[in-house]
Design a protein around this nucleic acid. Structure first.
Length: 244
DNA sequence: AGCACA
């Protein structure tokens, strides 16, 4: 079940993002997460009903986009110093399935390579609008909003003994950090997520840290997007909920 | 679920 039949491009399409995260916040997080794969030209995210929860990250190089897609696909399960629990595996799987190449060229790329055609663009837009209106007409105009908190915090994987070990917590436990990691570096990374409170590191225990958020959902969001983030290439960080 | 360029 790979990313389907869409050919590689400089732009990756990401779906299933938390719709509650503010647009700017989301763009910044994606930028932070994906800039490890190469230079990013643009991050596009809109909050319109049709486009919320999705984003496009435009790289300067196709290879960077491919790396981003591939890295997420082959998430480093086996490099991890600890055994993965079902919650983490579930969140990794959902991460993997969220990322594909974009179907069409990003405007910022088309502008670069001269293929950007403003007229055509407007026609396409008008066309989309017309079709959307048609669709509106055939259904009853009724704002059916299927709200699904979209949180990773509420997994319902049978096995209650496993669940005990991984109960969501507003405090995250970070492992496999390079020894040169500082609390400021972690702060830069985590503070971009809503609800961030503080980073705590322990002098005597290098390689680990605790990161506190206001609540479980906010910590989950940060965990999900920063899971495996590499401060150095050798050190994908492992994030779990701290034990209560 | 959902592929745009506010």
């Amino acid at each position: 079940m790979l990313s389907g039949d869409i050919p590689p491009s400089q732009t990756i399409y990401i779906k299933n993002l938390n719709e509650k995260v503010k647009k700017e916040e989301l763009k910044r997080s994606l930028y932070a997460l994906f800039s490890q794969y190469g230079r990013i030209l643009d991050v596009v995210a809109l909050k319109t009903p049709k486009l919320r929860g999705q984003a496009w990250v435009v790289f300067t190089e196709i290879t960077a986009a491919s790396n981003a897609v591939r890295q997420m696909q082959n998430f480093p399960f086996y490099d991890k110093p600890m055994i993965f629990d079902s919650v983490q595996i579930a969140s990794l799987i959902s991460l993997r399935e969220r990322i594909q190449y974009a179907k069409t060229k990003s405007d910022c790329i088309a502008k670069e390579d001269g293929s950007y055609d403003k007229k055509k663009k407007q026609e396409e837009k008008a066309e989309r609008k017309r079709r959307a209106e048609e669709a509106q007409q055939s259904t009853m105009p009724n704002g059916a909003s299927a709200q699904n908190g979209g949180s990773t915090a509420s997994f319902r994987h049978g096995n209650s003994s496993a669940q005990e070990a991984v109960a969501p917590n507003n405090i995250l436990f970070i492992e496999n950090l390079p020894h040169e990691a500082t609390s400021m570096m972690l702060e830069m990374l985590f503070q971009q997520y809503p609800g961030f409170r503080e980073v705590r590191m322990i002098e005597a225990k290098p390689g680990i840290a605790f990161v506190e958020f206001e609540d479980d959902q906010q910590s989950s969001m940060a965990m999900q997007t920063l899971q495996g983030f590499k401060i150095t290439p050798q050190n994908p960080m492992t994030i779990t909920f701290a034990k209560k």
